[in-house]
């Protein structure tokens, strides 16, 4: 999540819209997986953290118990970082439980080229062999460069390749997605 920059930024998903999307995604996750047994949510940090927490809260309301929530930084798995100038400082990765035999739901704020999801899948598999990996995102903005699909999406937003889409907190501290 970065700071809002241009004043010309257009809000495409406001706080109530984000809440509704998280609620719907949580219900779809329960439906697809027949409950929350063996589920592990993994936020792709930093962008996916807020969304993953929202979904975790909804899952708790629906199922009455907590689903483990991990945090995964994919910087060290990216194919487009090496040799590209000043390196980003990675965030620590936290996996609270083993992913072996679990159904892992990767959560990000925006899915774009698919390269982050690719890197995240490689990282998850280094932690063990999950029964399934699924992807949930608040926004799917298209322009995939890899054969990656999203399982649970809050909103499909058509964008130009050069657009910047970000989830941030506005001046009132509410989450919103802007283009």
């Amino acid at each position: 999540m970065r700071e809002a920059q241009a004043d010309s930024a257009r809000v495409v998903l406001d706080a109530p819209g984000i809440e509704r999307a998280a609620t719907r995604i949580a219900h779809e996750i329960v439906e697809r997986n027949g409950g929350t047994e063996d589920l592990v949510l993994v936020a792709i940090v930093a962008g996916g953290r807020d969304v993953a927490e929202l979904i975790r809260d909804r899952l708790r309301q629906i199922a009455g118990k907590d689903v483990p929530l991990g945090a995964l930084d994919v910087t060290l798995y990216r194919d487009d970082v090496v040799g590209q100038g000043r390196r980003p400082v990675p965030n620590p990765t936290r996996m609270p439980v083993s992913v072996a035999g679990k159904r892992v739901v990767l959560v990000d704020d925006v899915v774009f080229t698919g390269r982050t999801v690719r890197a995240a899948m490689d990282a998850i598999i280094d932690f063990g062999r999950p029964d399934a990996i699924q992807v949930a995102t608040l926004v799917d903005r298209g322009h995939r460069e890899l054969p990656i699909r999203v399982d649970f999406v809050g909103k499909n937003i058509p964008t130009a390749r050069s657009d910047e889409v970000l989830l941030h907190r506005n001046s009132r501290g509410e989450l919103e997605v802007v283009v």
């Binding site: 930084d73 060290l76 798995y77 990675p90 280094d126 063990g128």
Partner: peptide
């Protein structure tokens, strides 16, 4: 950066492809 590296050595498979 080292904070993020600590966790890698605690894994069962202690290796990232960087």
């Amino acid at each position: 950066t080292a904070e993020a590296m600590v966790e890698i050595s605690q894994r069962e498979i202690k290796r990232v492809p960087t």
